[in-house]
Design a protein around this nucleic acid. Sequence first.
DNA 1: GAAAATATTGGAAGCGCTTCCACAAGTTCG
DNA 2: CGAACTTGTGGAAGCGCTTCCAATATTTTC
Lengths: 334, 334
Amino acid sequence: MDSTVRLSDVAKRAAVGVGTVSRVLNGSANVSAATRQKVLHAIAELGYVPNLVARSLAANRTGLIAAIIPVIGNTQHSEVIQGMTDVLHAHGMNLMIGASGYSDQVELQVIEAFLARRPDAIYVTGVRHSEAVRSTLQRSGIPVVEGSNLTDRPIDTVVGYSNFNASVDLTRLLINRGYRRIWYVTVTRDFDDRIDDRLEGFRSAVSTGLELKTDVIRCENSFDGGAEAVRLAMASNVGVEAMIFATDVMAVGGLLECQRRGINVPARLAIAGFDDLTIAASINPSLTTIKVDRVDLGRKAAEIIVNRLQGNDHSSRIVDVGFQVVERDSTRRP
Amino acid sequence: MDSTVRLSDVAKRAAVGVGTVSRVLNGSANVSAATRQKVLHAIAELGYVPNLVARSLAANRTGLIAAIIPVIGNTQHSEVIQGMTDVLHAHGMNLMIGASGYSDQVELQVIEAFLARRPDAIYVTGVRHSEAVRSTLQRSGIPVVEGSNLTDRPIDTVVGYSNFNASVDLTRLLINRGYRRIWYVTVTRDFDDRIDDRLEGFRSAVSTGLELKTDVIRCENSFDGGAEAVRLAMASNVGVEAMIFATDVMAVGGLLECQRRGINVPARLAIAGFDDLTIAASINPSLTTIKVDRVDLGRKAAEIIVNRLQGNDHSSRIVDVGFQVVERDSTRRP
DNA sequence: GAAAATATTGGAAGCGCTTCCACAAGTTCG
DNA sequence: CGAACTTGTGGAAGCGCTTCCAATATTTTC
């Protein structure tokens, strides 16, 4: 394991040329079985570990993939990363990770820093980026995968689900269940296209509305924010029957506030969220929400990248991993 | 931004030697102001972006840090990563991430794969590792930071908090509050030293126990597992007064089960957790737990690494970031 | 004002690999 | 049996930087 052992040392030990050792390492077919054995022996004897930095420079290929998510310490996004590393690790590739903090400017900085390291591909969260980001990525010349939402005009490739459609379906579910006075709770701060699309999905679903009474309010994306939203709804005089939250975090916060105030969910107020956090299935009552297999989304993103890098370029530019409306007790009419 | 622009192109354009351009890029003091300006101009004109792969090879320093956590899609661990990237990014360094899945064997594989990329330092979660991992890390010759627990015999450096002491303090809090029949709920599967130390902390705190009646049971580390534990406790005839869970996930699961069964917490049963998940403060009743600033832990780990790499080696080998016992309603005697 | 010290600069060597080209050694075929 | 292929192999060149040494320019010192 002494890292001062170089490929040329292996070549010397095995009494072959450096080219041959390199061919053995890279699995080239043009090495006789006998020679291959000699080389493998020498590698084992010396405890040789290839220097991937040197390989990267010589081969113009690093085996590094860059991924940018808004916040790392956040299950929804890091689950995608988990899926990616699973697949990449199996292919001898590694993941560099960075956070944009939902800021266009930081996103650009992080991308530029990554590109200087010559990753073989890059994953970015969301599908709407600043012009600077788009053009920087385009000029980079490497595969770009956008994730966690869908668009028909990806920079390169997109793998995700339609936040818009999911929100439409969820809203329709509530309408079908008979709810008419529905509030939609989204976040105060400008987050990203995923949150925007969820709101638009709601608006679209209720636009055809017959006798619907709807409203949109904004709160902090936190448990407290959700609780605050419920307080606002209760304080109003419009008789809100159902609240759809843009995220499970807010929805759970709202549900807990209902527990505190003795508001019966769903009899008095129905609640729905989005993301299917683990807690959604366990809370009382269990929370109706949108479920997406994020680990699988990450795996798919990585598979697309691996395929592209291996030259199998026939995969689609737009991969829809789908979503699932999970109806639970928080919206089930008694 | 054309990536075919090389350092030598900049040198030509600025009519200086390649060494001078390199010195400007690396902030060497020995460049006259006039020359520096010429070079900076040429860089801007050509849109030159240094190739960090080549730099890594030549300088024998990659600016990459490797981090291994058990599971990436898990707030407790990925928050540490968030803190690390914050600091590393500010120093032009980047983070490679991998997951061990709580397996010694996978951990070793991931570490070996990382080392081939010549990271400047490596972060690993926990303080008890297989002998193979310890020796591999030791021979790597780079700074090694172990995190999220404490030991007096680190491989190199450790930054964390005492899971043992935290568990002792939490247990004593319950004893002080008058609880005597206390069950400790830990996980079924062999996880890591952190979970082990929490159990040992409990055992130590109750060992001096006067008229204490305690027991240890094992459940899945999930909401359902926690619920199951509560069911077991209720089914027993020993009159359990308090349950301490090794993780907030289980504790929250237990609390929700109490809600379902109408078990008054803490009047009938007190509940405590460990980790201070965000939900702990919002759930009903709010959950007594152990709080650690994990993002800050990650920042500290990264700062240690940066300092070490800059040659400021005078920092301690053992950094205790501390913990906080947060008493909330789930254990407050009525 | 010359010697000594210091500041600045150019460019060759080298980091540890991959890859290409040239060539040797077998194989096949007419 | 020799030409025409095929297969296997060695090693030089080169990836784009850093760094060191030698050389030159500038400043300081007495």
